[in-house]
Design a protein around this nucleic acid. Sequence first.
DNA 1: ACAAAACGCAACTACTTGTTGCATTTAGAT
DNA 2: ATCTAAATGCAACAAGTAGTTGCGTTTTGT
Lengths: 215, 215
Amino acid sequence: MRRVANWTYGSVAMATTPRKQSSHGSKRPARRERAIYRATLEELAEADYGALSVESVAARARVNKTTLYRRWPTKAALVHAALESIVDAFELEASTGSLRGDLLTLARRMLKITRSVEAQSLLRVRLLDEPEPELARIAAKLQARRQAQLTRLLEAASARGEVRRGTDLGLVLDLLGGMIHVRTTIKKMRVDDALLQRAVDILVSGISLHPTRAR
Amino acid sequence: MRRVANWTYGSVAMATTPRKQSSHGSKRPARRERAIYRATLEELAEADYGALSVESVAARARVNKTTLYRRWPTKAALVHAALESIVDAFELEASTGSLRGDLLTLARRMLKITRSVEAQSLLRVRLLDEPEPELARIAAKLQARRQAQLTRLLEAASARGEVRRGTDLGLVLDLLGGMIHVRTTIKKMRVDDALLQRAVDILVSGISLHPTRAR
DNA sequence: ACAAAACGCAACTACTTGTTGCATTTAGAT
DNA sequence: ATCTAAATGCAACAAGTAGTTGCGTTTTGT
């Protein structure tokens, strides 16, 4: 493992840009490139970052390892690029009219996100700041972006005035999201809609103006 | 990396038992052994399982690597033993008299646990079922044990009858614990007591019989 | 159809991981 | 205190993995 002195994969152009997107009108965003990124994320969702090997990514992407090494000089660079390639397509959803309904919609979306390969791989990178703090920073940034979108949804839902003023919406989000994450990713339990409803019921009843006691 | 055919580290005695605890009255539970386990857990809390190397553990424990290799033939065996060495000293805490007070006590304890090296390392192992399913299983068992203890606390608190019947206590626990975990371990935010109180307020107000609306 | 870039392949070097033999230390029993 | 067996440290080793390089072939844009 020979290390390049201190190669940073920050804002500097990090590899030879594939010419496909240079001219001709960016017909395809490099099909093969996407396959490689996908393979990287999948490997990362299954194993550690530490256990991730460039060779295994190459094998999964059906590509020779030299191809990878030439374009991304290090494992960190490859993962970096793969992370950056994640696009979170978030379309604002229509309000259901009630706080409970909106929270439930939110919960379902969170569950879907949590289950995705992107979220799983993002998590792996997120909780390693030791060997690659730079990568962890990037993963944090991406996650924050998602979080911000979810927060906006929640804010819109609560703006109707059904929520006690002073309520910490970020906290509510993390209560809900934390539960989903723990059950899905860590405990590997099945999270079904009934559970989401129960959780939402507790939270709604906990932050709502009206003392809704029954569920 | 030569692999032993299929060496399982299950219930079989996995290494030469140190003689210290054999006779003489178990004066010390092998001081050095504890140091090694500690080093293992610390390394594991900082890095991946995949990135964990026996050599780094040896270095941290100020021990020659051959010592480790001789007693634990593989990395998995070492981690296994280190995990098993974890003892969670849980003393039942006195009730504060109110549901809110008890939940807050519970939250504080969860925070403390979550921050511990043991929990951090346990988590790492927990979310790798790919390369070492056996290890993940063990980590799951240990975590379940902890969870059960916490659940009993919560049950005791709710038994006073301040909680709506039919309330999913496990869910409440995961809402609280999930939030703490996400903020502490993943987002690396500071979790202070005020936040815990706010969270508990929401939950208490969400599960309590009495419609407590103000906080 | 042509040229440049990208790719696959194979051989190679450098490093990491795990193993072994032997001298030295340590700890329990007499 | 002394003896002995287990445990450890050390160094040299074997084997595997991670990157590198040169070259011939394929792909791709013009």
